[in-house]
Amino acid sequence: MSEQQKNDNLVEIRHLKEYFNVNVGFFKSRPLKAVDDVSFTIKRGETLGLVGESGCGKTTVGRTILNLYKPTSGEIIYDGKPIKSKSDIKGFRKKATMVFQDPYSSLNPRMTVSDIIAEPLDVHDMYKSKEERRERILELMGYVGLNSEHASRYAHEFSGGQRQRIGIARSLAINPEFIVCDEPVSALDVSIQAQVINMFDELQEKLGLTYLFIAHDLLVVRHISDRIAVMYLGKLVELADAKEIYDHPQHPYSKSLLSAVPVPDPKTARANKRIVLSGDIPSPLNAPSGCPFRTRCAYATAKCAEAMPELKEISSGHFAACNIL
């Protein structure tokens, strides 16, 4: 791989919209704007963290990128090629996979571990002999630190952390370039979280993976991400390098979100002022006009109600969407 290619954007999302129709009356339905006009890029080999509170559309972004939901509009460009037709998607499935949030429901209870891990191989018919399949399974289990004796067992015989490793092994089966990690550690307890996070780091180094890391645990995201995107009510509000966004958040929502991060040092914690927002997150079914954050924003003006502010580059590589910046 040449240096030029390495700096390429592996995944590029342009004006992605994903609306779901929600029945509100007997015959009436209204669009729920789960993701509304989101654009960003992910560079080859980097980890983009995607944060935001529950229900802001993080997971939907991840699933729509993988075409598990058909995008309402917008473009997904992978490795320079737009993913549109069925054959594009078929090829794309061999390069991009997903790790799921809940290690309990993401593994079929009726399949053995080896069948679960080999499922993508079986679907794409990616081996020639039974022997080759078995070797690949053992190799994958080795990557994620599972014992080869576990291969013939069923998922319910494992702990949460082990189950998540099985899920990760499955997503690595096809030798992917890009993995969407949908809150992969939020269902695990803290000590296991650390192990799994470190494993993600090691695998990235070893296999040259690119991650879209969706999480709501801000410390985890800070640890693993190169860049971080903040979402609010289906819209991207800020995007910057991990360090930059933690040290100098610009958007009022990011500021408040990051002030909620617990600091393990009481002195700094006392010095930091927690910005507490008033009110609740509005229902995405009738989101406020213009900037969705204006109902809870201390700096909101009449202008904010008119239109969603553009995502502006306020310093090198630091984008934010707010009228006051």
């Binding site: 078929k90 009726r110 899920g167």
Partner: peptide, 28 residues
């Protein structure tokens, strides 16, 4: 609605695969 069905679809499995490998064995 289980995530393993989504996982199979993310791996590129079609309806036939999902029904025969995942859904029917689970309502056995």
């Amino acid at each position: 609605e289980q995530e393993y069905v989504l996982a199979a679809r993310a791996a590129g499995a079609g309806g036939k695969w999902v029904i025969f490998k995942h859904l029917i064995p689970n309502c056995f």
